[in-house]
Design a protein around this nucleic acid. Sequence first.
DNA 1: GCCAAGTCTATGCATGTGCATGGACTTGGG
DNA 2: CCCAAGTCCATGCACATGCATAGACTTGGC
Lengths: 149, 149
Amino acid sequence: MTSTKLAVEAWEALFRTQASLVRRFAEQDVWAPEHGVGLREYDVLYTLTTSVGGRARLGALADAVLLPQPSLSRLVDRLVAQGLLQREPDPADRRGVVLVLTDAGRAVQREVGRRHAAAIADALGEHLDDDELAALRELCRKVLPASSA
Amino acid sequence: MTSTKLAVEAWEALFRTQASLVRRFAEQDVWAPEHGVGLREYDVLYTLTTSVGGRARLGALADAVLLPQPSLSRLVDRLVAQGLLQREPDPADRRGVVLVLTDAGRAVQREVGRRHAAAIADALGEHLDDDELAALRELCRKVLPASSA
DNA sequence: GCCAAGTCTATGCATGTGCATGGACTTGGG
DNA sequence: CCCAAGTCCATGCACATGCATAGACTTGGC
């Protein structure tokens, strides 16, 4: 049995750190407001980039980015309007929709990805060395499976 | 100079872990939907509880909970409507508003706090021991000041 | 092959969120 | 004492979010 107090303190630190980094990145325009791309939008573009062929089913993507399906559907509307994404019917299942990155979408993802990485390295590297970064990564990953259940 | 790759991986792990824990807590009704209290609302109640006299200026609170001032103002509207909070004029500065926890507000905070702590201990304790919890806490705290700047 | 049940995505609607701004008040210089 | 500039909070407005649900399609039992 672990200490509740310790767990709460760890959660508070985790929570505030994440919130305040997101805020900082937003202030620095790390995502692409000029393309209507914020944190969630980038997460979608990024996840698609890591999918084979830059394509994925809407439902699968919703699970991956931890977003309710209707919210993702609307978010996709906007990305399509921006020309970053395309909807295609799924030949294997006509209920489904496959989302495909456009060239513009890939370009924006790459560009934002660069800025993103630089901002992250800047913010985290300011206070943690490589060993600590690796430790933080491993601790977070250990917790992650618990919540997907 | 720290490794960018490592920093990005740490950030991703941190981000997904936080998001997925928040999601999990919401599913478990850890906050009090019956009183219109969600994550942000609880954060406000909790922060007020830790303030002397259970009272604080609106602006100060907005900084503490990392919320834009107009958003907090509206959030406070709802908490006042629920009888959990009260607005009082600040005698020292008539522009200002002091927020005060009501007895009902304190009660809800205590009750939610208990559920919250239990859920956190459950989620984190499932995969981390005390040493790891302390390490996670310290790593996050080290990063935190960087973002408040 | 048919139908009931299940799955997948989109949309109506109520609500939350943030930005820009307005009105009230305070402060410091002259 | 007065006024210009600054601070503090609330509100108008446009937009994002989430829930419940509808519509389209698929699947498995008969």
